[in-house]
Design a protein around this nucleic acid. Structure first.
Lengths: 106, 106
DNA sequence: TTGCATACCTCGTATTGCTAGGTGTAGGAT
DNA sequence: ATCCTACACCTAGCAATACGAGGTATGCAA
């Protein structure tokens, strides 16, 4: 997958994955990879800054957890995040449809 | 449409539109808008630099034309451009499918 | 004790879409 | 005559963000 392809769609994906249940970063990445059949394997330099951005935008909230001596930051959707996800889904739909139309025409 | 959503997909769209027949910038923008039902209306500051990029990458070639006193730069696909388009289409397909899978799962 | 999976982080870079501003032609309306 | 709209091109600088590279640390199995 060409890099930068995610640009503008990563928020949607992360919010969607977290909407399936609160999870820590590493698990989020695993879920994404699984759900996409391996197509979406996020480098950590992409994942963590993106989660921090979403938290600073108040779309996610986090809390620290310790399991078996390992610390995890667990993320969950905020109310705003749920609304943003709905909006993002809609916009993805329009965008994908528009692209498909262009590709069909050409 | 949230801005930046195009990021990483603009090349595909431009190549696809030009593949329907050589055209100058303004016409390319019109075709894109038409084919997408108005969803994809490129600002000129997006369009022209993108065309220049594609030409410098040798995916498009251009020549000047004058019609009714107005000068136009007409773009057409190179062989490399045709191959890149095929590749881009495939990658779009995988990407879109991956995103849909994630959205369906979540 | 070596290696792997788990688990987090940040800095710097490159890419690229967009805003804002600029140039100029043609033709119709006021 | 003047204004407005559509046509048609361009660039500089900004902003956003995905990624590569590098760093820290735990638990467990070979």
């Amino acid at each position: 997958m060409k890099r930068e392809r995610l640009k503008g769609h990563l928020d949607l994906l992360l919010l969607a994955v977290v909407s399936a249940g609160a999870a820590h970063g590493y698990r989020i990445a695993r879920r994404l990879a699984d759900a996409s059949g391996g197509a979406l394997e996020l480098p950590e330099g992409t994942l963590y800054p993106a989660l921090h951005r979403l938290e600073s935008k108040k779309l996610l909230k986090s809390s620290w957890d310790t399991v078996g001596g390992r610390r995890r930051r667990v993320y969950d959707l905020t109310q705003e995040g749920k609304e943003a996800l709905t909006q993002e889904r809609t916009e993805w739909g329009s965008f994908a449809k528009a692209v498909e139309s262009v590709l069909d025409t050409a």
